[in-house]
């Protein structure tokens, strides 16, 4: 065989190899899907779709003569509130900080701060959870006592607000790191061109560079939201975990993930299957969010 043919063969083989690697993610996803759906769907059927998705009472351990209740609406709403809260706090702060790091941070400071931000990406949820309990919750408690301290249930500070702040902080490293990458990846000549046309430094950054980095920033936000929705340990420690419909931001709520982690260890039979089914719901939920974001991205012409 000639050299050229050999190279072609090698190229073709490698391409197939890369394709194979790429399909492992699909394979893994399929496996997880099959496992979730095979266990979850029968459970939903047994409980009844309406009773499951719209039921406001979650009480799976009721013994005879009462019947167990499997309504997960309180947890669905709880998860949504936590997600929105985390976005409100984490996304603006994260993106602005990424811009700061890329274009406004003095070099010496950057050299010191970058490892710090990377360090924070590695802090386990349990640590964040403890931080939340001893710092964030007391602050929110002071606030809550002013407004609801005399009402039944009191004001412990374990609330949607606490969880939102904590989640917002937890997703900062993800959003900052990837957004910053994306912003830095925009060619410098965009910036110089804008300056040459008379724009100020700030204007060039915010109205030329940042829009050019849109897709990377959006990717960082999606990953950040993914982390927020999937967060279990930290949320469990600061959100109060009340298995009832959320009342307002200064009161607690329970997310779908917290529900699973708290009960999975001991759940058996239908209870376990309903927890897997709630994971299916979470799954579908995330799918919807991703599709929405992709749709928005497509529309704004990325």
């Amino acid at each position: 065989m000639s050299d050229k043919t050999l190279i072609n063969v090698r190229e073709a083989v490698m391409e197939k190899f890369f394709l194979f690697c790429a399909s492992t993610s699909i394979l893994a996803l399929l496996l997880i899907c099959i496992f979730l759906f095979a266990n979850g769907i029968p459970a939903i059927q047994e409980v009844g779709v309406r009773a499951f998705l719209l039921g406001t009472e979650w009480a799976p351990l009721r013994q005879y003569p009462a019947t167990p209740q499997f309504g997960i609406l309180p947890m669905i709403v709880g998860s949504i509130y936590f997600m929105i809260g985390a976005i409100i706090i984490g996304v603006p702060v994260g993106i602005f900080t990424a811009i700061f790091f890329a274009y406004m941070c003095p070099d010496k400071l950057y050299f010191f701060l970058k490892p710090v931000v990377n360090l924070l990406a590695g802090i386990p949820s349990v640590v964040y959870g403890f931080f939340g309990i001893v710092v964030i919750v007391p602050i929110v408690r002071v606030l809550a006592i002013q407004f609801t301290g005399h009402l039944p249930g009191g004001a412990s500070g374990m609330s949607i607000l606490s969880a939102s702040i904590l989640l917002g902080i937890m997703i900062l490293p993800t959003i900052i790191a990837i957004s910053e990458s994306a912003i830095r990846a925009v060619p410098k000549n965009y910036y110089e061109g804008a300056l040459a046309l008379g724009a100020s430094h700030t204007r060039s950054v915010f109205f030329v560079i940042v829009p050019a980095a849109k897709s990377g920033i959006l990717a960082s936000v999606i990953l950040g939201i993914g982390r927020a929705i999937g967060e279990t340990m930290a949320v469990v420690m600061v959100a109060g975990n009340h298995a009832r419909m959320p009342i307002h931001a200064l009161r607690g709520a329970r997310s779908l993930t917290a529900n699973i982690v708290m009960e999975m260890g001991y759940a058996s039979g239908l209870h376990r299957e309903t927890l897997i089914a709630s994971a299916v719901v979470l799954f579908v939920f995330i799918l919807l969010i991703n599709l929405t974001f992709t749709f928005i991205a497509r529309k704004s012409g990325m």
Binding site: I133, P138, G153, M158, M237, N241, M262
Partner: peptide, 25 residues
């Protein structure tokens, strides 16, 4: 067969969380 614990009770995930919460509030 029905647990009548108050629905406004904060749910702590372990003894340590209960202790930390009570010692701080």
């Amino acid at each position: 067969g029905v647990d009548h614990t108050s629905s406004e009770a904060d749910i702590a995930n372990g003894t340590s969380v209960v202790i930390t919460s009570v010692s701080g509030n």
